[in-house]
Simulated scan of single mutants.
Amino acid sequence: MQNNSKKWFVLTSIGEILFFLLLWQVLSITSWFPTYVSSPVEIFSRIGEMFADGSIYPHVGISLYRTILGFLLVVLIGTVLGMLAGFFKPIGNFFDPLISFFNPIPKIALLPVFLVWFGVTDVTRILIIFTSAFFPCFIATLDGVRNINKLYLWSAENMGASKFKMLWRIILPAALPKIFDGWRVALALTFVMMFSSEMIGTSTGHGLGFMILNADSYGRVDIVLAGVFIIALLGFIFDRLLILLRNRVLWWSER
């Protein structure tokens, strides 16, 4: 029954995407869209050409490098600090006002500061990605730890478990569903901020953000939309991979 439900979900999702693309193509043919808005056929044709001549690979490669590195830093630092802040009350009290103060700040507003400190480098771009995605990861982990049933912790203490064992054997597994939710939000933000960060220093360079902005300056809407589609596709693939990892790690949660 569950397999049939998953197959139906996949088929429905594919059908929705195909219907959207077909409607877009029909509206382009019938001139409901402006002539400068490329149709799906033109966009996919351009994507095929870029993959065939190899011009897209440097842009995809450097963008994935910045995105994945930023995401891994978020997962490592945000998850560890979130667990410590949720488990140890003094650490949580230290971070609570800082998170409440800095979280609402648009992280792209920090870009001039990072540019002064680090210049137009990958360090600046990765820092922007990291600061944007850190807060959802940290907050989700913090909430996951604080919402654990206290009976689990009391039982472990009565059996003589050390703080480290409680963190590793009880708190981490119990908080993982919430942690994965934070990771998914953080992953989406890394792709959003990857594009924003690559729009700086665009006279020369590589990256999907650079490619899109450069194409826009020449009026190549087909390349702009092709770049947007590739970013969306990469984000979708990595989100599905994260969900697959979640289902493998949290196989017990479905039961």
Rank of each mutant, 00 (worst) to 15 (best):
F118H: 10
V120M: 12
N103D: 12
F95Y: 14
I105M: 15
T124M: 15
F114R: 07
P136A: 08
F102R: 03
V145M: 06
S100P: 00
I139T: 13
V123I: 15
A109T: 15
F114A: 12
I108Y: 06
I128F: 05
F130C: 05
L111R: 01
T141H: 11
P112A: 11
I128R: 02
I108E: 03
V116E: 00
S132W: 02
I148N: 06
I99A: 14
F102W: 13
N149S: 14
K107Y: 03
G119S: 13
W117F: 15
S132V: 05
N147F: 00
S132N: 09
L98T: 03
T121L: 09
P106H: 11
F118T: 11
T141E: 10
N149T: 04
A109M: 12
L127M: 15
S100T: 10
P97A: 10
L127T: 05
A109I: 10
F114L: 15
D96R: 15
N147E: 13
F138I: 00
F95L: 13
I126P: 01
I148Y: 07
D96T: 12
F130D: 01
F102P: 03
F95V: 03
F138A: 02
R125W: 02
I126Q: 02
F138C: 06
F130V: 07
L98C: 04
F101Y: 13
F102D: 02
G144S: 09
T141N: 11
I128G: 01
V145F: 03
F134Y: 12
I139A: 06
G119A: 11
D96W: 05
L110Q: 04
L127W: 00
P112N: 12
I126V: 15
I105N: 11
V123M: 14
L98G: 06
P104G: 08
F94C: 09
V120E: 05
P106V: 10
D143N: 14
L111V: 14
F138S: 03
F130T: 05
K107S: 03
L115V: 15
G144N: 07
F134L: 14
D143Q: 14
P136L: 07
D96M: 13
A140H: 13
F130I: 08
S100A: 15
L110E: 02
V123F: 11
N103C: 00
V123A: 13
P104C: 08
